[in-house]
Design a protein around this nucleic acid. Structure first.
Length: 874
DNA sequence: CAATTCACG
DNA sequence: ACGTACGTGAATTGG
């Protein structure tokens, strides 16, 4: 029997919430989350599944506020009360529950759940399904009934169902299902704000339909009706009646991307479900899962083939869809050597320690891997070119979820495959890290390959559902190739320059140290906040401005307040500044200069929550620039070739431009289109200054802080802190800002609402960040998630745009046979080495490429500088 | 190994 | 009433 069950998730959740609303205080999960709607939804589901025993199930949800119906009639569903927060916070968990129950769910932009259900029900009606059951809390769905389609409407909360068939409809109303739609067109619907015809209700509507058959029938015969108020109303409201009919009619041909085959029901995922019941405190449901339902996970053996001799490659088949995995100890692939590697598909695994295999032309590099960039560097160190492959599991996993790391053991866990040992368990960590015996090493490598092979299909499914296929194939994958080349190339750093800066700093530090000791009256460790705190706040009795968890805070903002009160404080600030430059930059960078006189950083491509890169060993994204003393460090970064310069190109205000684009705020857009100085423009609007020349430096500074705040998800406290003004004053700034930039305010409200409903936010390129805390009970935790919801699409889209620019630029430089090369990326900036002979042409190319990476509602601007060192290229 | 501080966008 | 700006990495101290 093929039986399809279609559930109107939005309406059932709504009914369930209000059915148990009186007991809402009793329905709370251990973590405080209200769960009455979740509980009610589950009860309804279990009952229906037990009664119907469906082979296919789909739960449809409404996608959002606007639909094709609101486009047709903006008042549609207008005037509805706001969804209570206690209800909204349960949405993401209802979806999580449905996932754990192994049931598919679906929603479609611009369409309601009704239309998804109507379309699938209609398709199933015409195919080989034996029966279709639709469950909803909304009687409108009864228009779908046919001989095969039964519609069940919840009554008395969600506990009981009323079954609608064509016969039952005839019996109850005396109408056919088509006539039921016409009835609604005549009488309208208050809850959906469908107008209908004035003064016609259920009784009159049924009478008319019985007499004339249909809405069209009524109007065809309207002339023969005798004169009455009702006739007049019918004539006056004719357009409205037909519009109402259109609104009331469920679309049976909506452009769904899900098929009937996708809705196959195979029962719950017991592990997930038990975890879910635990977090919800649903003991009753958990007990109902009898132990023998739960399949036991057995530890499997894994057989692999050791390939130690190159000639064995003759007998191997590389044609199937294989993965390659290279292992090193630790992370530093620029320095550490390969300790072993493995390749294979779901069934066959090969392992080896013989690196000569990798440079043997009989070794055909598999098109799937884990951490392509690492591999490319390692291959390069073997003297082998490693062209870009098709699929990188590490990057795929990063796009699917940033909540946890992307190690292979985590992937196994994420997709509930057989667990594998962690690298720490196999290799040890810290000082004890070591290569294990061959057996253990090879077993571990083969298991990694198995996880990769088994998870690929699951990842592709997720990427598909998240619309992220292109994000992987056209952005992260090609970028990893570009980054690999940049890392391999490295940037030349002049040791002597660093040493010279170091020696000068050393002298100043010595002098400051003895001055500080003298002023303090004793010697102590100035680097220790604890000891410094004792000197400043106990011995010298300076006022405590701020405390940390462990004692007094001695951070810069605190010391700056104290500086006028004690001359020692300025010395300490200066000491801090110089020792920071000395230890992190002079010494830190010197230690990272490789034998080729270059620094090869590693860009971590799978870490940040927003899509930015990070840079480690060393971090080349935080080389000092703001203060002159630190900025000198940049003089040590130089071109590799004679007659070349470093060229730096950075986006101007990319985050505010992205904000202007996604919010669509007309004023912010206009400012960028005019080419105004954006902070001056903001100052003008917020402080009511007509002429830009009348904006003072201080006005501009304040406006700049407000603009930053907007991007970060502003709060009056944060702004007041940053500007050193009162909270009331900060609040005034913010209120005025939102009043003058209503589009921004609207964006912030919309994106937070989206996050609360969906549990995630995304960038212009569908990069996703989950926000599990968006509905948290804890005010702080929740507010943090809300600010994150505002900031992540902005920061993330900006990051995406620079990634696109880098990929495009790399292609153009390669295809144009330029000698110029990209060296560094610093979030909104690219640094290149450019021969003087190419400077003019490449300068234009870089600027054009960056400015045309994406078409936004505002222009994108890149500013360039070049010079003999990085210091001069700013 | 956590906490503090400070460098960057 | 709650108590905050968004995203990172490295050096240092001290339990």
């Amino acid at each position: 029997m093929k039986k399809l069950l279609l559930i109107d998730g939005s309406s059932i959740a709504f009914r369930a919430f209000f059915a148990l609303y009186t007991q809402i205080d009793k329905f709370k999960a251990p973590n405080g989350l209200h769960n009455n709607a979740i509980y009610g939804f589950h009860t309804m589901l279990s009952n229906v599944i037990a009664a119907e025993n469906p082979s296919h199930i789909l739960i449809a949800f409404d996608a959002g506020k606007t639909t094709f119906r609101t486009k047709m009639y903006p008042e549609y569903k207008g005037g509805r009360a706001k969804t209570p927060d206690e209800f909204r916070e349960q949405f993401p968990f209802i979806r999580e529950m449905i996932d754990a129950l192994g049931i598919k769910h679906y929603e479609l932009d611009d369409y309601e759940a009704d239309d998804i259900i109507g379309t699938l029900a209609h398709q199933a009606d015409l195919s080989d399904f034996d029966a279709i059951t639709v469950v909803s809390g909304d009687r409108d769905l009864t228009q779908l009934t046919t001989q095969k389609i039964t519609v069940e409407i919840t009554i008395k909360g969600v506990g009981e169902l009323e079954t609608y068939t064509p016969d039952y409809m005839m019996e109850k109303l005396g109408l056919t299902t088509d006539q039921f739609i016409d009835l609604k067109a005549l009488m309208g619907d208050k809850s959906d704000n469908i107008p209908g015809v004035t003064k016609i209700g259920e009784k009159t509507g049924i009478k008319l339909l019985l007499e004339y058959g249909s809405l069209e029938g009524i109007y065809d015969n309207i002339d023969s009706m005798k004169k009455s108020k009702m006739k007049e109303n019918l004539i006056n409201d004719k357009d409205q009646a037909f519009l109402s009919k259109e609104l009331a009619t469920i679309d049976k041909h909506s452009p769904i991307t899900i098929t009937l085959d996708d809705t196959v029901y195979n029962g719950p995922d017991f592990d997930k479900l038990i975890k879910f019941y635990d977090t919800m405190g649903f003991k009753k449901f958990k007990d109902e899962l009898s132990g023998d339902n739960i399949p036991q996970v057995e530890k499997s053996e894994i057989a692999y083939t050791l390939i130690s001799n190159q000639d064995e490659l003759n007998d191997l088949d590389f044609s199937s869809d294989q993965f390659l995995y290279l292992e090193i100890l630790g992370e530093s692939y620029h320095k550490s050597d390969i300790i072993g590697f493995a390749w294979g598909n779901k069934d066959n695994f090969y392992v080896s320690k013989n690196l000569l295999l990798l440079s043997d032309e009989r070794f055909k590099i598999p098109q799937n891997t884990y951490d392509f960039k690492k591999n490319k560097v390692l291959f390069h160190r073997q003297g082998v070119d490693y062209p870009l492959v098709e699929f990188d599991s590490m990057l795929a996993k990063y796009l699917i979820s940033t909540t946890e790391d992307n190690k292979i053991a985590t992937i196994a866990d994420f997709y509930e495959l057989e667990p594998i040992a962690s690298d720490d368990e196999v290799y040890g960590k810290g000082a004890k890290i070591a290569v294990p015996e061959d057996d253990e090493l090879f077993d571990h490598l083969a298991r990694k390959v198995r996880v990769l092979a088994e998870s690929k299909g699951l990842m592709e499914e997720d990427l598909n559902n998240y619309s992220q296929k292109e994000l992987l194939s056209d952005m992260e994958m090609p970028l990893s190739d570009v980054l690999a080349k940049m890392e391999i190339r490295g940037i030349k750093v002049n040791r002597d320059t660093l040493n010279q800066i170091g020696q000068e700093n050393e002298k100043s530090i010595e002098k400051l140290t003895s001055e500080i000791y003298e002023m303090a009256g004793e010697e102590f460790n100035i680097n220790s906040p604890k000891q410094l705190g004792v000197i400043l706040f106990e011995k010298m009795g300076l006022p405590v401005i701020k405390k940390t968890k462990t004692g007094y805070s001695t951070a810069v903002d605190v010391l700056e307040i104290l500086a006028p009160q004690a001359p020692i404080v300025d010395k300490i600030l200066k000491y801090r500044q110089l020792t920071k430059i000395q230890s992190t930059y002079v010494q830190g960078l010197s230690n990272e200069i490789a034998p080729d006189d270059k620094i090869h950083t590693r860009y971590v491509q799978d870490l940040t929550q927003t899509g930015r890169l990070s840079s480690v060993e060393p971090n080349l994204q935080n080389i000092p620039v703001r203060l002159e003393e630190g900025r000198k460090i940049r003089k040590a970064f130089v071109p590799e070739w004679d007659d070349s310069v470093l060229l730096s190109s950075d986006y101007s205000q990319i985050e505010l431009r992205v904000l202007a684009h996604i919010s669509g705020d007309e004023h912010l857009i206009a400012a960028f289109e005019n080419g105004d100085d954006i902070h001056t423009s903001t100052a003008q609007r917020v402080f009511d200054i007509e002429n830009p020349d009348d904006v003072t430096a201080n006005d501009r500074r304040n406006a700049k802080a407000v603009n930053f705040g907007v991007v970060y998800g502003i709060s009056d406290f944060g702004l007041s802190n940053n500007l050193g003004i009162s909270r009331a004053e900060a609040k005034k700034y913010i209120d005025t800002y939102f009043e003058r930039y209503p589009g921004i305010k609207n964006y912030m409200e919309e994106i937070v609402r989206f996050a609360k409903d969906k549990g995630y936010v995304e960038t212009l390129y569908h990069r996703r960040r989950k926000l599990p805390d968006i509905n948290a009970r804890n005010f702080n935790v929740r507010q943090f998630a809300e600010r994150t919801a505002i900031n992540s699409p902005i920061q993330g889209s900006a990051a995406d745009i620079l990634k696109v620019a880098m990929i495009n630029l790399d292609k153009k430089l390669t295809e144009g046979n330029f000698k110029s090369k990209m060296l560094l990326q610093v979030h909104d900036e690219i640094v290149l080495e450019v021969p003087n002979s190419e400077l003019e042409e490449v300068g234009k190319l870089v600027k054009d490429t960056m400015e045309s990476a994406i078409e936004l509602k505002v222009p994108l601007i890149a500013d360039e500088n070049s010079g003999k060192t990085w210091y001069e290229a700013k």
